[in-house]
Simulated scan of single mutants.
Amino acid sequence: MTQNEQAAGPRMIAISSGKGGVGKSTVTANIAVAMADSGLSVGIVDADVYGPSIPGILGIASDKPAMTPEQKVIPAEAHGVKVISMAMLTDDDKPAILRGPMVTKYLQMFVRQVEWGALDVLLLDLPPGTGDIQLTLAQAFPLSGAVVVSTPQDVSLKIARRGLRMMEQVNVPILGVIENMSGFTCPSCATVTHIFHQGGGEAIAHELGVDFLGKVPLDPDVVDCGDSGRPLVEAAPVSPAADAYRRIAAALAQTGDASAGIATPFAWSLADGSGKPAPAQTGTGGRADRLVALDHEDGGLILRWADGLEQRLAERDLRLACACAQCRDEVTSAQLLDPESVPLDLGITRVWSVGNYALGLAFSDGHDTGIYTFKALRAMQGTELEDV
């Protein structure tokens, strides 16, 4: 890892799917164990709060977490992988009946209030879909990238495409597509039967311009191993499915470079300079929408982007550009904020990261509810410092 990655913590990789039933949690558990077997320090956050299954797959469903003297949760550990899950906090047959704010609270705790130790990779096993949990994680944490798991059937691939687009909209890099349940090999005659069609995962990866990480064949042992709490990569290490998991794990171990932008999360107080993010070490030439340096001087916010563009955005202009519900109509986008009510000498007091895709800004007039996406910031008509 680079110095920037070490300072920012482990690479956080989200494992997602557009729909349920595609084997996402089984894939997550097996690639985590494969990574651990290769020498990496790995953790899993079972972010499927309503339907947690990772502990059962790894054989630690009955483990209840303990607390450190500093009141941090000690994660369970199995097969070399550290795990935290709602299944460890509730009884086996007790449903998690939670509204959105409580789900957010638990997700924050699973990442920030757990004694993970020194991790190389933290895998986030997301629930299916593109809802509140996915958006919460994208906004609250610096995801290094996301992986989409799909089966080859058309309906699964169409929904997987939506999941990919959702991650792109919140600036989470797409590390690739995994095609699960890609074909069944008859143990008697070795004939491969493509029960759910074939090649769809690779086709959608090519169509969207992302990596195809591999295909995992159907294997009855996957079910048996999941039920017994022993992952396939350990129970049947020479099977085709186990080999596919290891190949995918090796590919992911080389991706998700968090040093492509400024280290996040950060909360920068302009009053005393505390929390200011260090600039990225990658210089220029990266993705245009990747913020690599942030500064403040002469009444303006200075932003430098990966393609070399530098902007100076005036503080009052940023306040007037706020698109929150207090400042703009949510339906018509008409401005509700009266420009005459914004003082000419208004300043920024705090800046903080919102996932990988936006900044939050607080101003001297007390306003602090706006989220400024990188796309919106780049579109603002500020001063391009490279032309000065």
Rank of each mutant, 00 (worst) to 15 (best):
T255I: 04
L337C: 09
A244E: 00
D345M: 06
A314F: 11
G56L: 02
G360Q: 13
L337T: 04
H79D: 11
D221M: 14
A362E: 14
V148L: 15
A278S: 02
V83Q: 01
G226V: 03
P142N: 12
A47I: 01
D368A: 15
A29F: 08
V148F: 09
T255E: 11
A14L: 09
A138L: 10
G308I: 06
D227N: 15
G199W: 04
M12D: 01
L122F: 12
E70H: 06
V238C: 10
L336R: 15
D120K: 10
A66P: 02
D227M: 09
F184P: 03
W116I: 07
R230D: 07
A280D: 02
D37I: 06
G308H: 07
L320R: 04
N30T: 11
A61V: 10
L40S: 04
L123W: 04
Q108F: 00
L126E: 03
A293N: 12
A250M: 09
M88F: 02
Q139H: 12
L40W: 06
G20E: 07
K64H: 08
D243E: 15
A288R: 15
G355L: 08
D295Y: 05
R378I: 15
A362Q: 14
I248Y: 07
M12C: 07
Q311R: 10
S259C: 11
L123M: 13
A138R: 06
G9C: 02
Q381H: 14
V354F: 00
R378A: 14
K375L: 13
D132V: 08
L320K: 06
L119M: 13
G201M: 04
L291R: 00
Y106K: 09
W268S: 07
L313W: 12
A321C: 12
P152F: 08
S182Y: 11
L336S: 14
D227L: 09
W116T: 07
S144Y: 04
Q198F: 07
P152N: 13
V223K: 14
P187D: 15
D132Y: 06
V388L: 14
Q335W: 05
L344C: 01
R99L: 06
K82Y: 07
A362S: 15
L107R: 00
A235F: 08
R99S: 03
F266W: 05
I248A: 10
